[in-house]
Design a protein around this nucleic acid. Structure first.
Length: 715
DNA sequence: GAGCACTGC
């Protein structure tokens, strides 16, 4: 992912002062102060601090551009909320946001990043003992809670972008509600008079300080004080959060956005691809300067519209041909993604064809026109089969507003919704929260590890489907993570909960330890946890196949992945012997390109690998290798992934044993033509047919031998 | 012989 302008981007002008660096610095400080004071939230600073002092939970509804994410933590810090060494934690749903905002706030405070102001995301911790304002991803705070269930180092936790309702945010809210209750109960209110020195060195007045004693102190040996909770949301509807926290107080902070003129069609469109194309050319030919952002559902749609524009463009008069088409979606290599940030050649208008990556994750400069066909591709969850198919649905109202807002970031803009106005009012108010449409195995494992035994009775902000909970509990039971009494099993369940992986993969590591092939399984699981590591441009499909053949294993995709990883690792280690680590990394990227491997995915897998290797070593597991014994390796795969086994049928298709579904081996598999009798697989995708991916061949008889709890009846 | 939105630990 390219580095992106955050929602709270720096609007301060660059200053080049002829009077030297010191004057430069002063000018910069003044510019920052001026910028801070001009933010809409600045006028309510005192009031916000009062509200936080008077309320344990506060909901802040802040529109885009209010400055809430960067400013509130600073207000709290200078308002004395870090006394006794307490930390202000601010959670974000996305990694880039946590990093860019932390950098900005460190600069505003005039401190080095990682000192007073820092951030922590997976694989990258820029905090220290002196960090008092800590930005982080919500998923990371959930992981921290496993080690410190009372989140004792935090005096305030701010949950930002709560309206997005990611699974992590929802689970975190539930956890925070309990933690807050426990922490306030655990405090005997011994009030002292005390002088506090704030971190900025200013002596504050003597005031009443509540010191924590009581139960929690005894239990934890830690000094627990009450926890302040602030929920920040950009949606106008604060009621759901307020209700959840017992009628918590909500305050509204003005935003700062330019007006966006929203236009609708008169009639519903039968073909939105065609309507999109017409609208792009209409804007290009009739409207003033400014780039166009088009929201589409996926790569295929983006590529076909790109082709159609290129076909029609030459038919326009020469003076009107200056239109530059730029696609952007998540799986596009980063170099190509960066193109959206580059200014077009002089006189050209950019038209950016994007998935909803451009809704929140990437802020593209220069957009004046937004085209919104009103459709989006979403992942759903079918509890009866466990499949998570992607389907195209209408957007919600909130999503349509988010999209149109993208036209008003730098000046007044226009949004073309390709449906009639009355259709807009029929849309759902907001997108279904993720927790209602995903597999819950991981959520349940984490809650159990946090001591929540009664999952069906857990106080979720919005209940997931009962069936989805039961299905995931069943899975965890089959994996041996839960006991008959539905408690986390010891040690397996506890070990699994500590690993940041899909529970099936966590279990595979535990199993591999018994099969003496943990070294191999760590690599395989890391690779299975990332996007496909294969990257072959359409025009080089044949060439890529030839190159990759040298790595392929007749025993299946798992051993093929292992070979590729080891080859890349060997290459990297050799390069490190002759050059700097940076140069070695660069060489590895070149190696990836030559071997048709996606270097971004491989890097991600390497990061995961080193993290989970550390995790298993900390658990006391011994990382041993089975060497060349691939039979042992496949027996271990069978013992780990026994729930995903399939048998060949007389007609050459397969039947998945646990679900009974008819499936086929995906054409990308090395076993596609081999068609072995019995296979295990890691993924079942539903497109035109049911395909299984990441497949290895196993012996049918291993199943009752290695997973008797599930296959006893086969004998 | 296929074609998969976006996040996160």
């Amino acid at each position: 992912m390219p580095s992106m302008a955050s929602n709270n981007a720096d609007h301060t002008a660059k200053i080049n002062n002829p009077n030297g660096p010191k004057a430069d610095f002063m000018a910069r400080r003044q510019a920052i102060e001026k910028h801070r004071k001009a933010l809409p939230i600045a006028v309510v600073e005192k009031r916000l601090l009062e509200e936080v002092r008077n309320n344990d939970v506060l909901i802040i509804v802040g529109e885009t551009g209010s400055g809430k994410t960067t400013q509130l933590p600073q207000y709290l810090f200078y308002g004395g909320f870090c006394r006794n060494g307490g930390v202000i934690g601010i959670t974000q749903p996305r990694r880039v946001a946590a990093v860019t905002v932390a950098k900005r706030v460190a600069e505003e405070c005039g401190v080095t990043l990682g000192q007073k102001v820092g951030y922590a995301i997976r694989f990258d911790d820029a905090t220290s003992a002196s960090t008092r304002i800590k930005y982080m991803t919500d998923g990371l705070l959930l992981r921290e809670a496993l080690l410190d269930p009372y989140l004792s180092k935090y005096s305030v936790i701010v949950v930002d972008e709560a309206h997005e309702r990611t699974v992590h945010t929802d689970v975190l809210l539930g956890l925070l509600k309990t933690v807050q209750k426990t922490r306030s109960q655990g405090v005997n209110k011994n009030v002292h008079n005390r002088t506090i020195e704030a971190e900025n060195g200013i002596q504050l007045e003597k005031e009443n300080v509540v010191e924590s004693t009581g139960i929690m102190k005894h239990n934890q040996g830690k000094n627990l004080s009450p926890l302040k909770l602030i929920i920040m949301s950009a949606s106008l509807d604060a009621k759901i959060f307020s209700d959840y926290f017992g009628g918590a107080r909500a305050v509204h902070v003005q935003g700062r956005q330019y007006p966006v003129d929203v236009l609708y069609t008169h009639q519903p469109e039968t073909d939105y691809v065609d309507a999109t194309l017409i609208t792009i050319f209409q804007i290009h030919l009739e409207e003033g300067p400014g780039d166009i952002l088009v929201f589409l559902t996926g790569q295929e749609e983006i590529e076909s519209i790109e082709r159609l524009i290129q076909e029609r463009l030459p038919k326009l008069p020469e003076s009107k041909c200056k239109l530059l088409v730029i696609p952007i979606f998540a799986s596009l290599p980063s170099e190509k993604q960066m193109k959206v940030f580059m200014p077009p050649p002089s006189g050209f208008r950019k038209v950016i064809l994007a998935t909803n990556i451009a809704e929140t994750s990437v802020t593209i400069p220069g957009i004046r026109y937004v085209i919104d066909p009103g459709m989006v591709k979403v992942r759903t969850y079918d509890a009866s089969t466990g499949i998570e198919p992607l389907i195209i649905v209408k957007t919600s109202k909130a999503q349509a507003l988010q999209r149109s807002g993208r036209a008003g970031r730098e000046g007044p803009g226009k949004c073309y919704r390709l449906y009639p106005e009355n259709e807009f009012y029929k849309l759902k108010a907001s997108t279904t929260p993720e927790i209602k449409r995903c597999n819950l195995a991981n959520v349940i494992l984490q809650l159990k590890a946090l001591g929540v035994d009664d999952i069906l009775g857990f106080d979720f902000i919005e209940e997931p489907d009962r069936m989805a909970i039961i299905k995931s509990m069943e899975l965890l039971f089959l994996l041996g993570a839960l006991t008959d009494g539905s408690k986390l099993s010891d040690p397996v369940g506890h070990q699994m909960a500590r690993l940041p992986l899909d529970p099936i993969y966590s279990k595979a590591l535990v199993v591999a330890n018994q099969f003496n092939c943990l070294e191999e399984m760590l690599i395989i699981v890391a690779l299975l946890s990332v996007e496909s590591i294969y990257y072959a441009p359409r025009e080089k499909l044949e060439e890529s196949r030839t190159v990759l053949r040298s790595f392929s294993s007749l025993e299946g995709d798992h051993l093929t992945l292992l070979k590729i990883y080891r080859a890349s690792d060997e290459f990297l280690e050799k390069s490190k012997l002759v050059g700097s680590p940076d140069k070695a990394e660069k060489k590895l990227r070149k190696w990836c390109k030559q071997n048709f491997i996606n270097s971004r995915s491989l890097k991600h897998a390497r990061d995961i690998h080193s993290q989970i290797r550390r995790n298993v070593e900390q658990m006391g597991l011994c990382v041993t290798s089975c060497g060349d014994d691939t039979l042992q390796m496949r027996r271990c795969l069978a013992a780990s992934f026994f729930l995903n086994a399939a048998l060949k049928q007389p007609d050459g298709t397969y039947r998945a044993l646990s679900s009974g579904l008819a499936v086929q081996i995906h054409p990308s598999s090395v076993l596609f033509r081999m068609k072995p009798e019995c296979i295990i697989f890691n993924e079942l995708v539903r497109t035109n047919q049911n395909y299984v991916r990441n497949v290895s061949t196993i012996d049918y008889l291993w199943l009752p031998e290695l997973a008797p709890q599930f296959y006893a009846l086969l004998e």
